[in-house]
Design a protein around this nucleic acid. Structure first.
Length: 430
RNA sequence: GACCCUGUCGUCUAGCCUGGUCUAGGACAAGAGCUUUUCAAGCUCUCGACACGGGUUCAAAUCCCGUCAGGGUCACCA
């Protein structure tokens, strides 16, 4: 039975790299019908925070990775001390006293060649004579990372350790612990790192690093996961859009790339739009409703669900971020729209009173106020005035929305309704 | 510095294991066009890469060696 684990340290939020490690672990466990274990590595009492634990668990769920078991290292300190004592008795470790009289347990590293067969990288060789003796239990009684990690991975029967590249150099130290403790060696797979656009490590300087930041910026979890999946793995057949369920069937750890990948926000935006435009408007509304309430555009208890659903459909193909909707569709929710000064200068500096009034008359005469009829009345008017559609369309759009960009004019007039359309046009007539 | 990992368009990648079908394919970005009711979306096109040098071979992106470049790790942090 395959058992993998994701072992975050709650000294910060779940970041992009951690999310990707969790993704590959989760995917591998699902593809092998195994178990996905979550282990919170909170041995550092100073830096570990409950709020980070909550944030990490929340982000993991948001991404769609559910775990089968959950452990906290802070509850297992006795175990680590027991195993350290065992090594002490076996003569494989020794005690070192600090000047203050505190005792630490140190592992004696024996010189040897260590070979690790990495599932992604193949064989990697290390020379342990280059590694100094390793602290097992610190003088404050807490275990070090490498030791706690090995004890837990062995005790939890972890079969595959899938983690970031930055842990390669920890591997020989851990292998030494496995051997000393008499534990069978697990399989190792080291994932390439994700870099920022500057080529260096992904940092706050080069962009947002926390998964939760991407949620706040309006990315769909499905899009983010799909994008992360494409960093160092390809589903084959020149495909790019792959949902998690499909990926389970397609995934093979051996096909994961060895090269570090650069995080490209532009492609993430494209991916997000792909998911946004194909999303179920109902689901988008559930996400959007709180944001609209926050802005005071709707009230939580009563709003016309079908109406907002219609608006969402109008904007869906052009959304790069979920919350773009809140900014772009503002004119549907507020009475006093603000008009972009440049747009006003360009399209409304000329007096169009008679044209606007004629259009209002046309709209008022419609028996059925629908998109098709609105367009027809407009086309008729343009023909009557012997002018081009675009010379009237742009001014109308700016007068009605305050913007030069947006959905098709006739659709937005339909959703604005006759009364609001009249009010906004009359503002620009003398 | 030592050790380890990695080098295909600006970016993500396919191809590499099992040399020939590769005048290296796709996607994002960029540029142009179509559409036209703007912005998106969509469609069409353009630009653009095998890090370098040596081998091996009839034949190398693919196998071998070296160089260079980038990254990671060298804590009683995880």
């Amino acid at each position: 039975m395959v058992r993998v684990r994701f072992a975050p340290s709650p000294t910060g939020n779940l970041h992009i790299g951690g999310g990707r490690t969790a993704l590959f672990n989760w995917l591998f466990s699902q593809s092998q019908k195994g178990k996905f274990v979550l282990r919170v590595e909170d041995t550092d009492k100073e830096r570990s925070k409950k709020e980070f634990v909550d944030e990490i668990l929340f982000s993991l769920k948001w991404l769609g990775f559910n775990w089968d078991e959950l452990y906290y290292q802070s509850e297992r300190f006795d175990k680590y001390r027991q195993y350290a004592d065992k090594l002490l008795k076996a003569g494989l470790a020794y005690i070192e006293k600090s000047p203050e009289g505190k005792e630490a347990t140190i592992f004696k590293v024996s010189p040897q060649k260590i070979k690790v067969n990495d599932l992604i990288r193949g064989q990697i060789e290390f020379d342990s004579s280059l590694i100094k003796d390793q602290v097992l239990i610190k003088s404050d009684g807490t275990p070090t990372y490498n030791f706690a990690c090995v004890v837990d991975d062995a005790e939890m029967n972890i079969t595959h350790i899938i983690r970031g590249d930055d842990h390669i150099s920890n591997t020989p130290k851990q292998v030494l612990f496995y051997e000393a403790l008499g534990f069978p060696l697990p399989n190792f797979a080291h994932l390439p790192l994700i870099m920022g656009m500057d080529g260096g490590r992904l940092s706050k300087r080069t962009g947002a690093t926390a998964i939760s930041d991407y949620r706040k910026m309006g990315y769909l979890p499905e899009a983010l996961v799909n994008y992360l999946l494409l960093l160092s793995w390809a589903p084959g057949g020149n495909r790019e859009i792959v949902n998690l369920q499909e990926a389970i069937g397609l995934f093979d750890i051996r096909n994961v790339n060895k090269t570090a990948a650069t995080f490209d926000l532009k492609k993430l935006d494209w991916m997000n739009n792909q998911y946004l435009k194909n999303a179920d408007p109902q689901e988008l509304l559930d996400e959007l409703a709180p944001l609209l309430v926050e802005r005071g555009y709707i009230t939580e208890k009563q709003f016309d669900r079908n109406y907002v659903l219609g608006l969402i459909r109008l904007f869906q193909p052009r959304l790069a971020h979920l919350n773009d909707f809140v900014d772009w569709a503002d004119f549907f929710f507020i009475e006093e729209i603000k008009t972009d000064p440049l747009a006003q200068e360009k399209f409304l500096s000329k007096d169009l009173s008679s044209e606007f009034k004629l259009f209002i008359t046309e709209l008022e005469s419609l028996k059925d106020f629908n998109v098709e009829n609105i367009e027809k009345s407009f086309r008729d008017l343009v023909a009557k005035l012997n002018t081009e559609a675009k010379v009237l369309i742009h001014p109308l759009r700016v007068a009605l929305t305050g913007k030069t960009i947006g959905p098709g004019l006739f659709e937005l007039i339909y959703y604005l309704g006759l009364e609001r359309t009249k009010r906004r046009l009359l503002k620009w007539t003398k």
